[in-house]
Design a protein around this nucleic acid. Structure first.
Lengths: 329, 329
DNA sequence: ATCTCGATGATATACGAGTATCATTCGATA
DNA sequence: TATCGAATGATACTCGTATATCATCGAGAT
């Protein structure tokens, strides 16, 4: 700013005013300042501005994973919704490790992030303490629960899994097996699993250890084949397999296609997520549609509202899900 | 820091030293300071530190898109490689618009980003000027060319498309059609297209307007079906179709599977990208394997080296690609 | 007893902007 | 001609951390 002041022959304070309170400066003066700014290529130092203004125009976002997942849609949605407001995304990938999330939160706060958007409700105690003392908006995304830190945006994972399970039961399947990821530090996986269990028991079905199979996170398409293969090798074959993630479901479907197993005649397959591929498979796949991008946009919108002064109301926004019943069941 | 100083009974300068030059402070004193830091929950203000140190421990990253693409792998690779060094990612999604990239660069510089990682070589003039004056490392990723701003990490898009084209020619295909995205503001698409053209003409093949079909960015899996359908409806059907993006190729493949078109007997299909699904399709797909995550890690590694004082050498690092010959050709 | 060195402290300044307070200049208006 | 207000300027202080310079104190070495 000092350089601009000298080059334009105007005082430092006038340059500052031209930038911060343009209405107090004569139009001609403003134009003159803008001209020298362009000539000099002056770019304000936002770190200095941040120091005074106590804000950074940055919003911290934590996702568990980005590759081949709806979290990429989510992050893109957040970024695009924030950009028009001059907010940038500070990104962190936690790999489903709460300690990494905590570390990310710590650096977000240290960098004066204006708000923090997290995935899920699984946080370390230290992270909760940090967030309690943090005065900006905090959004927990991808699930809905009662006890939110500040606000939440997502869908009811429990209800989604339960609804699909009920559908499978009503459809007449007798031996339903659920395949899910580890519930450790993953409230989404936990809620989905519980949704399956609750729907089953509510229908009088027994849920034994053989009804639930676990795969390792991150869920890959490659894991689907071996999983369904081992299930079909059981003495008592399941007649329906409900995958709590889309990629293994797709992998299972493709394995069946390549190995002469008929879907849904030999075994029905349902997924969770509805990646675009699922509808286009030779046997279009029944699945729970999740709109990751929409969750991201909603999370960003909620954040911006709060930043613009909307009151704290511990909102939990449910963007919903939708069962996509197709031919695989 | 002032609070920590008062609470611990030690002077401000000692607290500062304990944090910045720990070796100059007695271990007991250090422990005492650490204790009060923990008690108070003190988190240093990195905006203030940044103002003095002229660095921010943030690295700006621009990707054209994140959803359903290898750029998500790329971004994850960058983030994970930077994290152990205490660097965070400032993310921007440009949507293939150089103006958005320019705007992102401007804010990265304003926020004192230590380095900038871009996708591709298509920048606005203003962006080039900004980057010329910028003193941190700049990495252009996802392609290799001669005139780099600072350094580049990627693979030779031209060579990759040419090699696949040569393979198709050698395999005996007579009517090869290329399907690619718009080359406007997309050097990768342009280079791939040129690679196809060059390989064709080098083999004495004619490349007419009917040999090249264009789809809209972003390439979706949904676009593949209609594309291959219209190609097969031509009087002179192509016997091989080379998609310069993976999703439309997968879409085309699935359309063929669902519509009784035999691959590769009726038409051969080749893709570009090798998303994990491609190898698992009922007809595993021939494609060019790109390792997005590796590009991200390499870009991050190069950045870190430069930040740690490695000399500027206008490096162009080629991480390569690999033809995956499968059954679809 | 003198010197040296490690550990700590006091003071001042810098980083780049934002802003409060008070002063000055100039032209328009009554 | 006196007054007012818009436009601009000068000065000082703030934000939170880093660091240079010089000072002080005490323990151990010579």
């Amino acid at each position: 700013m000092k350089d601009v002041s000298k080059a334009s022959g105007l005082s430092l304070i006038t340059v500052s005013r031209a930038l911060r309170q343009p209405e107090t400066v004569h139009a001609d003066t403003r134009a003159k300042i803008q001209k020298t700014i362009d000539e000099l290529g002056y770019i304000p130092n936002l770190a200095a501005r941040s120091l005074v203004s106590q804000r950074s125009d940055m919003i911290g976002v934590v996702v568990p994973i980005l590759a081949s997942s709806l979290f990429a849609d989510f992050a893109e949605g957040v970024s695009k919704a924030l950009e028009p407001q001059g907010q940038r995304v500070l990104l962190a990938v936690s790999n489903w490790q709460p300690e990494k999330e905590e570390e990310a939160i710590r650096t977000f706060i240290a960098r004066q992030a204006d708000a923090i958007i997290l995935t899920g409700f699984s946080h370390t105690d230290a992270a909760r303490r940090l967030l309690d003392r943090y005065d900006g908006p905090v959004v927990e995304a991808w699930n809905t629960r009662e006890n939110v830190i500040d606000s939440a945006v997502g869908f009811n994972n429990h209800a989604a899994a339960a609804e699909m399970t009920r559908y499978l039961i009503d459809k007449g399947y007798r031996d339903i097996v659920m395949v899910g990821g580890s519930s450790v530090n993953n409230d989404q996986a936990a809620d989905r699993t519980q949704g399956f269990i609750d729907a089953m028991t509510a229908a009088g079905r027994e849920v034994g250890p053989e009804s639930i199979v676990e795969f390792d996170n991150p869920a890959t398409i490659e894991s689907g084949g071996p999983l369904i293969r081992s299930l079909l090798a059981r003495d008592r074959k399941p007649d329906a397999v409900f995958f709590l993630a889309e990629l293994p479901a797709q992998g299972a479907m493709l394995w069946c296609l390549s190995n002469g197993v008929r879907v849904p005649e030999d075994v029905a397959i349902a997924g969770f997520g509805d990646l675009s591929l699922s509808a286009l498979l030779p046997v279009p796949m029944t699945t729970v549609q999740i709109r990751g991008r929409e969750i991201g946009e909603a999370a960003a919108a909620q954040t911006l509202q709060r930043l613009q002064g909307a009151p704290v109301d511990r909102t939990v926004k449910d963007v919903g899900f939708q069962l996509q019943i197709r031919s695989s069941t």
